[in-house]
Structures are given as structure tokens and as C-alpha cells.
Design a protein around this nucleic acid. Sequence first.
DNA 1: ATGGCGCGCGCAGCGCGA
Length: 256
Amino acid sequence: MRLRLATWNVNSLRVRLPQLTGWLAAARPDLVCLQETKLEDARFPRADLQAAGYSAAFAGQKTYNGVALLSRAPLEEIGAGIPGFADEQKRVIAGTLGRTRVVCVYAPNGQSVGSDKYAYKLAWYAALRDWLRDELARHARLALAGDFNVAPEDRDVHDPVLWQGQVLCSEPERAALRALLELGLADAFRLFPQPDKSYSWWDYRMLAFRRNAGLRIDHVLLSPELAKRCSACTIDKAPRRLERPSDHAPVIAAIS
DNA sequence: ATGGCGCGCGCAGCGCGA
């Protein structure tokens, strides 16, 4: 099994489709988790992606959220949402490729610490953890990838003092992410030596990308069976340099 | 710095993202 697994928050699939197809041709991933497609399912560009060599499974809605899985080989056991967690927001889609289970997530942003959206974020994380515990029991080879909207540690934050206690960096959010790691999942990016100041998201404002004022909030988490087969994990900053980019860069993991 | 950008919606300017 050789698998190149990627995740990318595209911030509107309609706008980013040309960049996505260009990136697919250049990076040649086998499986891609997309977030913030912002498309109803009837508007999903299935034919364009088929022409690019990928079948798709998707769960979308107008304007907000929306997730998809792109795969060179057919996916099975496709399911949207977290079972038992009623949620109008399309944030989760899962599928199985051979013996590998892939769960694509777009975690809630949380808006600000203490807000209703922050409470929803923590409840969503608790439901995700409970479900993943069962999924991991069923699938030794499991990848959980997406936009987690949490920077795990201060080294994942360009200015930890500025961000201390803020949404995306607060201790309850970091604890929620750690609870996933405590199920046995490994942060693929940290399995390898990485450059300092590696981030996956940069604000559109304040020349943040040029200043590398970013956060690492997009992650690929791997079960032990996949982690021991993982040979690399990198953030591809090239798409963030294009005209009209997504504010997120893709993260790609190689599994052998 | 506490705005600034970019998206969708829809046709003005707002809600939202992170």
C-alpha cells in the first residue's frame, strides 16, 4: 500500500477549483480531504474532479462549511456527520479505501473563548472523540485529517504571547485535540524533524503570509498502524502564494 | 493593530472565518 494523503481547507471550492485541479496534477495525492467547500451537493463539481482523475464523496451546504473526500480509487463505507451527534453543519465525511479508514473533519472555529460557538466547538470535539474511539476499534488503519482549528502547542503559533488563551490556542481547545491523540492517534507532522515556524494558515490581512504570521491548525492524525508506515509529512506553501489563494495551505502525508 | 482580507449572498453591506 502506498498512499499520499492530503488535507486542504480550500475556502470555497467554486473559487478554488482551478487551483485545486492544478495542485492535484502537481502533487498527485491519492486521497484528499477538503474543507469549506461552501457548496450544496447539487453544485459539487464532480465532473471536473472526475476529469482530474478523482472520484468524490461530499457533504455540503450553501455558504458555510462543507467537506469532501477525493480519491483516485473508489471509496466505500461513505458516511457524513458524527453518528449520534445531531448537527446541521456539514463538518465530517468518512470513507474507506481498501483497509484504510479516512475521516475528514472541519472543526468549528469557536469565534471567541466563552461564546456559544466556543461551547459548540468543545461539544463537537467531545462527540468526535467518542466516535473515533469506536472507529479506531474497528479500523487499525485510520487517518483523521482536516482543519482542526486548534494550534496544538506554542511552537505552532507565530506569536504565542499574542495568541495566549485566544480561540484556536486556548487550553480547553488544546485539551480537546490532545484527547484525540490520547486515543492513540499521532500528529503526522511531528513524526519528523520540521522547520521552525511551520504553519498551515495565515490571515488574509496584515500581510500575514509575507510575514509568516501563521498558525498550524490543519493536521493529519494517524493510528499506530499508519503512523509506523508514514515516511513524510509536509505543508505545501506553494498554493498560498498564488493569486486569490485559500488562507490555508495543504498538508500531505506519505504512507507506505 | 483590535481595522486592514476574502468568502457568499445578492446588489448594499453584513455575517463569518481564524
